[in-house]
């Protein structure tokens, strides 16, 4: 058992024993290798089922919306920023929460690892930066840093920004010469190339809405895509409707997205939906100097007005 898992179980079980929280939300082992499932522990014994490895990529903040209980929650850097968002947006209050922060060394891109093999993965073992993956036919040892998810590669807030406990000493934050290389590559295209880039990107979308469901920001009681009267967007597979869904889903996350990557992780078709939200992350940073979820003391740029807000787009 790795030290993170051990510490998480210990902290969670103590919280429950001491009655400080009603439940703890964490990750449990999934049914197949490289899968973890969100899990809830209400008793110290149940806390023994918690695990931690580079597959804990979903964002548990998603399960906090409008909860009334006192909750313990496990949070990576990006998840902690989503918790800040939730508190700012009045979806949960700070004093309801006990945040067990995880200094994160990155989550892996499962599809990239699966792509190394022709058959099913039967075992995944992580030891520090070395990962051993086994299938029926072969065994490979890979370097975790080479197989990080896209958002983990550009993450600059690996340590939780808000927490009550930390499961380990803070990790060193990455320093990147240019965190927005991917966005700039798209910006450099002409209008038709951009259009085609997103047309190809979305060609596999089956509109299952897993990306929306995995996102902690998407908590509206009725999502615009589900509304029938008025029907904002068609329900079918027409490319225009698919594009409208993705464009608006992304825009609803403007100034709020923490680039946690849960949307991409959840997609069964391996669609890089962050190509939309990354542009908003970059714009928020460049226009307003804003990174979502870093502080409880400031309103996000799109729900405040400041006289110095740039307005040169208004003619």
């Amino acid at each position: 058992m790795n030290t993170y898992t051990k510490k998480i179980r210990e902290l969670a079980s103590n919280l429950l024993k001491e009655g400080k929280v009603d439940l703890v939300i964490g990750f449990k082992e999934g049914t197949v290798p490289m899968a973890t499932a969100p899990g809830i522990a209400r008793t110290p014994e149940e806390a023994d089922g918690f695990v931690w490895d580079a597959n804990c990529s979903l964002n548990l903040t998603n399960y906090l919306t409008n909860k009334k209980e006192k909750i313990g929650i496990i949070a990576k850097g990006c998840d902690s920023r989503s918790i800040v968002n939730h508190i700012i947006e009045n979806k949960i209050s700070r004093d309801q929460l006990h945040i067990i922060g995880v200094p994160c060394t990155g989550m892996v891109d499962k599809n990239k690892i699966r792509g190394l093999f022709e058959d099913e993965i039967t075992e995944f073992k992580e030891e520090g930066d070395v990962i051993r993956v086994k299938t029926g036919a072969k065994e490979l040892t890979i370097d975790k840093q080479e197989y990080l998810r896209g958002n983990c590669r550009t993450c600059m807030h690996r340590n939780p920004v808000i927490h009550d406990d930390l499961v380990a000493e803070p990790v060193v934050e990455q320093k990147l010469a240019d965190p927005f290389k991917d966005v700039k590559a798209i910006e450099a295209m002409d209008a038709d190339e951009k259009w085609n880039h997103f047309e190809n990107l979305l060609s596999g979308c089956i509109r299952c809405y897993a990306c929306r469901n995995a996102c902690p920001l998407c908590y509206c009681p009725t999502c615009f895509v589900d509304e029938a009267n008025p029907q904002w967007v068609g329900k079918g597979q027409d490319p225009t409707d698919i594009r409208t869904f993705h464009f608006l889903r992304a825009y609803h996350c403007a100034g709020r997205c923490t680039d946690c990557g849960a949307c991409e992780d959840a997609c069964p078709m391996d669609i890089k939906v962050r190509d939309f939200t990354r542009k908003l992350v970059k714009d928020s940073f460049e226009i307003y100097g804003w990174e979502a979820g870093l502080t409880l003391d400031q309103r996000p740029p799109l729900d405040t007005f400041k006289p110095e807000d740039p307005d040169d787009f208004i003619k």
Partner: peptide, 10 residues
């Protein structure tokens, strides 16, 4: 909003 529309090719 305009920026994101432009980003996706409008």
């Amino acid at each position: 909003m305009g920026n994101l529309l432009e980003h996706m090719g409008i």
